[in-house]
Simulated scan of single mutants.
Amino acid sequence: MSAAFTLVLLCAPGFADHHEGDAKAGEPIVLFDGKSLDGWTAVLADDTDPKTVWSVEDGLLRCTGRPKGYIKTDRQFKNYSLSVKWRWTGKPGNNGVLVHATTPNALNVWPMCQEVQLMNGNAGDFWVIGSEIKIPLEGVPGYEKMVQGRRHLNFVDGAENPVGEWNEMTVICRDATITVLVNGKLVNYGFDSTVTEGSVCLQSEGAPIEYKDIVLTPLAD
């Protein structure tokens, strides 16, 4: 596993002048302005008013966690580094960051995507939703315990801060690869993803949570 981590780090992409649509490589795009949900659209499992689930206060994006659903960026992205900070504001539970989200309702309310888990104690797991991904552990003893149906466990325990403190997740999407860091620690790496572009989404999945500093930086070729 250390060899796999080393490979990921050596292949980490740099930034240079390059355009991805109207986004310039290396120039951060602030997805959440701390004032409103401009640029985001809410999707919920029922007809609950989204304003009772998602709100903005004191520069933070707050989510009650119920009902299930998500907010998605109105723009779609490919090849980028995404940084998201989150903390639990009550009893910790389950939520996630969805990347490469496209087809709606691929699995119940969830769109086709790759989910990067935020669930307390499991941040960095992959959950495939209408998609596939591989992790570089095939042939390693215990591999079958790391891939459990749609779930691909992260490699590192103890990366999360205590409940109530802020955490930072970085998700680097490069073509069909996804690299995940939690609080600066490399925790997961996937390749041969069957989805490689789409919206970025934040889940509402059962627990109250706050988000801030949601920034996407396009990558160079």
Rank of each mutant, 00 (worst) to 15 (best):
N95I: 04
F5N: 07
N120S: 08
T52L: 10
G39E: 05
I133K: 04
V140M: 10
V97R: 10
V84M: 11
N79Q: 12
K85R: 14
T102P: 02
R66Q: 12
V8Y: 02
F191T: 05
N95Y: 03
I135P: 00
P28I: 04
M146S: 14
N95H: 13
F155T: 06
P92H: 06
A106R: 10
R66D: 12
S199T: 02
Y80Q: 11
N183K: 05
V109E: 15
P67K: 01
G93N: 10
L118I: 07
L60Q: 13
Y189M: 06
Y211L: 07
V97P: 14
I209M: 05
G59H: 08
F126T: 05
T41P: 00
E210I: 04
L186G: 07
I71D: 09
F77P: 14
I29F: 01
K78V: 14
G59D: 10
I178H: 13
D125Y: 02
A220L: 07
E168G: 07
K91I: 09
G26L: 03
S36K: 02
D46E: 06
K68S: 12
M146L: 13
I209R: 00
A23F: 01
E132M: 03
G34C: 09
T179Y: 05
L202W: 00
D221C: 04
Q76M: 11
S193V: 00
I133W: 03
H19L: 09
F126W: 03
L9K: 12
K185I: 09
I71L: 04
C173E: 12
G69T: 06
G139L: 08
G90W: 02
F126G: 05
S193G: 15
D125G: 02
L37M: 09
V163L: 05
E115D: 13
E138D: 11
Q148I: 12
V140P: 03
G26V: 03
R150A: 14
H100S: 14
E205T: 01
G164N: 08
I178L: 15
V109S: 10
K78W: 07
G14S: 15
T73S: 13
V53Q: 07
R62W: 02
G130P: 10
E144W: 06
P92L: 06
L37T: 04
D157S: 14
R87E: 07
F15C: 10
D221A: 11
D22A: 04
N108C: 03
P162G: 11
V182I: 15
T103A: 13
L98V: 01
E20D: 07
A42E: 03
F155H: 07
D221G: 01
I178E: 15
V43T: 11
Y80E: 12
V99C: 04
Y70S: 08
R75M: 11
H152Y: 14
G90P: 06
L137F: 06
V147T: 15
P111K: 08
L202T: 01
Q117W: 00
R174D: 15
I29T: 05
L31H: 04
W110D: 12
A16T: 12
L118W: 03
N79V: 10
F191A: 02
